[in-house]
Design a protein around this nucleic acid. Structure first.
Lengths: 248, 248
DNA sequence: CGAAGGTTTGAGACTAATCAAATAAAGTGG
DNA sequence: CCACTTTATTTGATTAGTCTCAAACCTTCG
């Protein structure tokens, strides 16, 4: 398990399968697993599908949290901003991930697409009604939140303690692991994030990300395919770097 | 609201009062507010009080999460460690805060006291039984978890984007705000954390923390009283520094 | 093909880490 | 209560790592 896991917060281990809309109520998805057929019907009736263009916001920080989303296709990033305008990416999300759930009234962070994307959204009021009817569902969201908290804490460790090289290596490893969990096992991974996006997530400048990737390439650890394609050619060494074994 | 808030995750705004044991079931505490008298009795009967020495662990990362704790006296810090031994402090906790709740089977981080402390602990099995009986309680823990997540995300921002000076200023502001919320409004705040503890939380070395505090002292922003006493003498300037207005 | 946006690479500046030593505070035993 | 020990803090000098500013080079797309 990589210490810098961009995807730990999805429903892994809860029986999920990528590409299936959780909101739409498929039984094979973790969130819905404990629900009976009637409950699934309730959920499915309340959802709607939305297509989004690249770099289009799903919701912004501070907006009323009117819906919960499931990303069914494409990738998205989550960002948090401060009053003075500085911002950071706090995660990337992939098909199967749930976005925008919060027990509060407003979104604590924003979400925007990186690619063309499809989401399935469920009205918050209906979700609350489902909570009342099926309390076990609330437990699922609590588990999801705790998982996200653990991932964010690891991100704190990474930003506070890792060098640029370690952060980049851990990031690449976590991306490939995320890809594998989703069954997309091709050698080339396409995250449609710019170097600036990645830098915002890793607490680095885009130049440092670029330099570090170039160094990896020259050492034969990765191969770049166009702007957004990345292939890990020496995963073991990258994993060792990510674990702080650069010298040892 | 400071961006680097060590205490956002406590039950502020949910009607809590410091120094009252949540596990013990006082009605004036947020967690228990939605419960009726019978439920409070259920909770109170299931708790036990424990005294701890300074630097004594409450629980360690990876241990089975057998209990949930309320800190009733003293201060504690939370730490997360990586496989390679590197670790970071992920927060400080004060009287009234809840510690060690997780929906998973094991603690995702460790907690240890900084001072002599008293905690009140509730057996996890009994808590689960209470959840079944009073589902509204589970919603409280979800809110708590979401609050903690937001605080941790802000910490990510701070570590990724703030200079040493900004981190130290934000940290001091958040400590004083925490103190005020608890009603301990004296001018001198005592966190019993060493410079090394603070550095572990802020992603800095102990020398950098010391140098930054010294610089604040020379500029008349703070006054130090012994090793652990800190007094903010120019809070506005510190708040401006914390908000990234060092130059502007 | 040209334009726009993204990436790579370089040079220099600056922040914070490291290594090291001196000072101050807290704890201990006489 | 004092001297001694231990632990924590402060300060200094140097180094390493990352940022900033700048320019050239790719990619992608119209």
């Amino acid at each position: 398990m990589s210490p810098l896991d961009v995807t730990r917060s999805r429903m892994d281990g809860l029986g999920s399968e990528a590409e299936i809309c959780i909101n739409c109520g498929s039984r094979s998805v973790g969130l819905c697993a404990p629900l009976d057929a009637a409950a699934l019907g309730d959920m499915a009736r309340a959802t709607e599908r939305i297509r989004l263009a690249p770099r289009e916001p799903l919701f912004r920080q501070g907006e009323p949290a009117t819906h919960v989303y499931t990303l069914t296709d494409g990738t998205a990033r989550l960002t948090r901003v401060l009053a003075d305008g500085r911002q950071a990416a706090i995660g990337f999300r992939f098909p199967g991930d749930i976005l925008g759930f919060t027990p509060g009234a407003e979104h604590a962070f924003g979400a925007e697409t990186l690619t063309e994307a499809t989401v399935c959204r469920l009205d918050r009021k209906r979700l609350d009604a489902l909570f009342r009817r099926y309390p076990v569902l609330e437990r699922r969201f609590l588990e999801l939140c705790a998982r996200e908290l653990a991932a964010t804490q690891d991100h704190v460790l990474a930003l506070g303690r890792f060098t640029a090289e370690e952060r980049c290596a851990a990031f690449l490893i976590s991306l490939v692991e995320a890809q594998e969990k989703r069954g997309h096992a091709g050698p080339v991974f396409r995250l449609h994030a710019t170097r600036a996006d990645i830098g915002e997530f890793l607490g680095l400048t885009l130049e440092t990300v670029s330099r570090t990737f170039s160094a990896f390439r020259k050492r034969g650890l990765i191969r770049l395919h166009g702007q957004s394609g990345i292939e890990l050619t020496d995963r073991d060494t990258l994993a060792a770097l990510a674990a702080g074994e650069g010298e040892a």
